[in-house]
Design a protein around this nucleic acid. Structure first.
Lengths: 199, 199
DNA sequence: AAGCGTCTTGGACAACTGACTCAGTCAGGG
DNA sequence: CCCTGACTGAGTCAGTTGTCCAAGACGCTT
């Protein structure tokens, strides 16, 4: 094992943990597997992190940060809110279909965090971050299309997140892309009816 | 321990397993805890079930069956599709808020089944059952309100399930009932616009 | 009442995996 | 050349699972 700064080794272990969790699920993400995946010894894991809990917290942080960055789709000026909504969701959908393991992992992490005493805040943070991203996206659309939304932003953001979560979850189970995309498109259509002329 | 027919004892163990899983999560649902919860000995578990896997399969079957039965809300004749949709979702929401543990468990079970080799079919079955229940409900509404739906039923059913899943999942994380209900109501409103006069 | 299946149990076993510890080794910068 | 930080082998200890057993308890039939 090459000698590496502890900070770098930590990052390697976090990356390895994410790979294992994506592939095998969080339940199967043990310190041993993480160590093997990273090509390090088990003891190294405990040298770099005080506990598995701490490692997992870093993993969660990394994934949530990565996700919220990936969701920062640029909004190209478009004809109307409906088109912008469709484009945004389609772009998101491409990412989802490309990395099903990562999506599955985010849900698993949510439930894991909800169950783990002292980690509930991570689940909440995950969703707050997501809602914020949805809100930003919707405000970007309003600005680009010159419209206003006919519902309060917190409710709107939750509705959008709801739609995304629901469609992704359903698709993860049966992988029925045509129906999932059809549902997504129709929901986007419905959503677009909430766009109104600015006050 | 009172003497009980093996068949009844099996049911008791399944019920106990569900209680433990609701309370502590599936990951923490061990054979020993199940036995304790049921007030039976560990040996009884293995007397009644060939393996933990078999017990879990029965648990899944029981929960999915129970859920689909709970979803069979009766549709009272109402003025319009919008009202019927709202009533149905509100009724569902009452159940959700009353038994958050059960909801959390269903999601965990989905992901558990998706990860467990040879149990993916349970996850698919779970969602097929749910979609069927959604479709039945929507058709009931159409009949009761004398309307038709402007989208194919498979897509519609998935959209409804999407909305339910998404709202419940979001609520499980932050328990923000007002916003969740607001989102649910608005989504029901949107959904209602898909009701059209019959052909 | 005796007999005989059907349940029930405590206790044990081996095999495994989990997180975590620690004394000690090694490499490279000063 | 030595010291600090990186690394590790070899453990500890606890938990879970599947399996088995010998023994006992219960209730139904004859």
């Amino acid at each position: 094992m090459a000698r590496v700064a502890a900070q770098d080794r930590r990052q390697q272990l976090i990356d390895a943990a994410i790979r294992v969790a994506e592939r095998d699920g969080i339940a199967a993400t043990t310190t041993r597997r993480i160590a093997t995946e990273a090509g390090a010894s088990l003891a190294t894991v405990h040298y770099c992190f005080r506990s598995k809990q701490q490692l997992f917290e870093e993993v969660l942080r990394a994934i949530i940060t990565e996700l919220s960055e990936a969701a920062q789709g640029d909004i190209r000026p478009g004809p109307d809110a409906r088109t912008l909504l469709h484009d945004g969701l389609r772009a998101l959908w491409e990412i989802v279909e490309k990395e099903p393991g990562k999506q599955q992992l985010t849900y698993e992490l949510t439930h894991y965090a909800l169950r783990q005493p002292g980690m509930e805040s991570f689940a909440r943070w995950q969703y707050e971050t997501s809602y914020a991203a949805c809100a930003a996206h919707l405000e970007g659309i309003a600005a680009a299309a010159g419209i206003a939304w006919s519902l309060p932003m917190p409710v709107l953001a939750r509705m959008l997140m709801t739609v995304i979560d629901g469609v992704v979850l359903g698709w993860l189970v049966d992988r029925d892309s045509p129906t999932a995309v059809a549902a997504l498109d129709s929901l986007a259509d419905l959503f677009a009816t909430l766009a109104v002329p600015p006050a």
